[in-house]
Amino acid sequence: MAHQVKVYSTTTCPWCKRTKQFLDDNKIYYQNIDVAADKAARDEMIAKTGQIGVPVIEVDSDISVGFDEKWLREKLSL
């Protein structure tokens, strides 16, 4: 079954780019949420994670703050 993947990111953050590159390279479909443009989404992300920093990656119901290749590979069975 396909995983539900969300990336909370900004357009300027280098680690967000790395995260998206990694997902693109592995042909993983994800929803990108620009939290700089969408303040409601920003507040939702802060409430969910208790922190203010991007990227936040959500795979199904698990969350990682920051790009963590090992974690992503594990969650996405890559």
Partner: peptide, 17 residues
């Protein structure tokens, strides 16, 4: 990570307004 940041270009846009 709760307001203290070391990379303005990364986390800066989260502090709009």
């Amino acid at each position: 990570g709760r307001g203290v940041a070391y990379c303005a270009s990364c986390d800066g846009p989260l502090f709009s307004d």
